[in-house]
Simulated assay, not measured.
Amino acid sequence: MMEALRLRNVDEDFKAHRQAWLNREVQAEKQIGKKSKPVFGTFDQFFDYEKSISKDYQKFETTKQAETFESRISKIYQKRKGGK
Rank of each mutant, 00 (worst) to 15 (best):
K37F: 04
L22N: 06
K55H: 06
K30W: 01
L7N: 13
K59M: 13
V10G: 07
F43V: 09
G83P: 03
E12H: 11
F14Q: 11
F69A: 13
K81L: 05
Y49Q: 09
I53S: 00
Q27V: 05
H17A: 14
V10W: 10
R72S: 09
K55M: 10
S74M: 10
F43H: 06
I53H: 06
L22S: 03
K34C: 02
N9S: 08
F40Y: 08
E3N: 08
A20W: 08
Q58H: 04
Y57S: 12
K35E: 09
G41Y: 00
Q19S: 08
G41F: 00
Q31I: 06
K34D: 09
Y57T: 14
E29N: 02
K84Q: 01
D13P: 00
N23H: 05
E25S: 04
K34W: 05
L7Y: 09
K30T: 12
E61W: 05
M2I: 12
M1H: 12
L5N: 14
F46Q: 01
G82L: 01
E61R: 13
K79G: 01
K34Q: 10
T42I: 01
K37S: 10
E29K: 11
I53F: 06
S71W: 06
S52Q: 11
T62N: 03
D56Y: 08
F47W: 11
E12C: 07
S74K: 14
Q58D: 10
Y77W: 08
E29I: 01
T42Q: 02
G41M: 01
I32R: 08
V39C: 04
R18V: 11
K55I: 07
F69M: 12
K75H: 03
R8G: 11
K51E: 10
K51N: 08
I32P: 00
L7G: 10
T62A: 11
E25K: 04
S74D: 08
L5M: 15
N23Q: 07
R24Q: 08
V39W: 03
N23T: 07
S36Y: 06
K79R: 09
T63Y: 05
Y49L: 11
P38K: 02
L5A: 15
K30F: 07
F43T: 06
F43P: 01
R6S: 14
Q31M: 09
D13A: 13
Q45R: 03
K55W: 07
V10K: 13
K84N: 03
A16P: 01
Y57G: 00
K59I: 15
K79M: 05
M1K: 10
T42L: 00
E70Y: 08
Y49A: 06
F46G: 01
K59L: 14
Y49K: 12
G41S: 04
I76C: 04
E70L: 15
K75M: 05
K15L: 15
E12F: 07
N23W: 03
L7H: 13
E12P: 01
D11M: 15
N23C: 03
